[in-house]
């Protein structure tokens, strides 16, 4: 094994190796200080007066429906980010260095522009007098402009746009770590292009997919600006409700309870997802 490990491709072996825990310790301590302490404070706030705030949050329909809709939107955004992001990551990982550089510039560009600017770009595109509507009307396909903007569709488009790099980057990184001989070998062993994708690329980039999906889903749950600006106020996200409770109604205990619920549901979902992935990897 010692001999083999020096010459066999490091990449194909590194995919399951645990990270060097010791090196991340200072960062962990910092994160504890910055994130855990406020979290504990939030937690204790939400329990002042027993479970009353939780009762309010979980009954009466309003907040559970918003929670459900928030997860729904985050799920749709994650799904489309994956469906668009995986092929892009795949192209980036397999193309020539020149096209990779150009592709990366396009992927990274949105990360370097502010969310507001990106959101405004969608308004210019989707507005009643926007480029798309004007093209449809000028070409005679439409008489009156479509309401593309200020809708759930616009929110999802805008969010997918913002989140795509977070899906592409981890998947790209996982794909480049796959030994290029593996798909070649699979092809020689009789696998079609589709089977190579499902039996080699997808399982070997699973870590990247899980990372991308987790990142996109969790960040999407907390989205605030994009839904408010592109949804015309008709799309309500949980984070917007929490913010409203904190800033407008000063109901911090209740906001605390809402936050804890959002956190708990998110954690449970990802625990389940990770369980599923871990089981899959064992099989």
């Amino acid at each position: 094994m010692t001999l083999a490990s020096t010459t066999a491709p490091v990449a194909s072996r590194a995919w399951l190796r645990p990270g060097p825990f010791a090196l991340t310790l200072p960062a962990l301590l910092l994160l504890t200080l910055l994130f855990m302490l406020p979290l504990v404070r939030l937690f204790s706030l939400s329990f002042t007066g027993g479970f009353g705030w939780y009762e309010k949050a979980l009954t009466g329909g309003l907040y559970t429906v918003i929670l459900y809709r928030t997860f729904e939107i985050a799920g749709i955004v994650t799904f489309f980010s994956f469906v668009i992001g995986y092929p892009v990551a795949f192209l980036l990982a397999t193309t020539t260095p020149k096209w990779r550089a150009i592709g990366f510039a396009f992927v990274m560009l949105p990360l370097w522009t502010s969310v507001l600017v990106r959101t405004y770009a969608w308004m210019v595109l989707l507005g009643r007098n926007g480029i798309i509507n004007r093209m449809l009307i000028d070409s005679g396909l439409l008489d009156t402009p479509l309401s593309l903007l200020n809708s759930r569709l616009a929110v999802i488009l805008g969010m997918v746009h913002v989140m795509l790099p977070f899906m592409i980057l981890p998947i790209y990184s996982a794909l480049t770590r796959i030994d290029p001989d593996l798909p070649t070998a699979a092809r020689g062993l009789g696998a079609s292009a589709l089977r190579i994708l499902t039996t080699i690329y997808l399982p070997l980039s699973l870590r990247g997919i899980v990372a991308g999906v987790t990142l996109v889903f969790v960040v999407s749950l907390g989205f605030y600006i994009t839904p408010a600006l592109l949804g015309g106020g008709k799309v309500m996200m949980y984070a917007m409700v929490i913010e409203q409770q904190v800033r407008e109604f000063l109901a911090w205990n209740f906001a605390g309870a809402l936050s804890v619920i959002l956190l708990a549901v998110t954690l449970v979902m990802f625990w389940l997802l990770n369980q599923g992935v871990a089981r899959h990897l064992r099989d």
């Binding site: 309003l62 429906v65 918003i66 809709r69 759930r152 309500m236 409203q244």
Partner: peptide, 8 residues
């Protein structure tokens, strides 16, 4: 909020 939600 409830009213807005009921319209969506």
């Amino acid at each position: 909020n409830k009213w807005m939600l009921s319209k969506a």
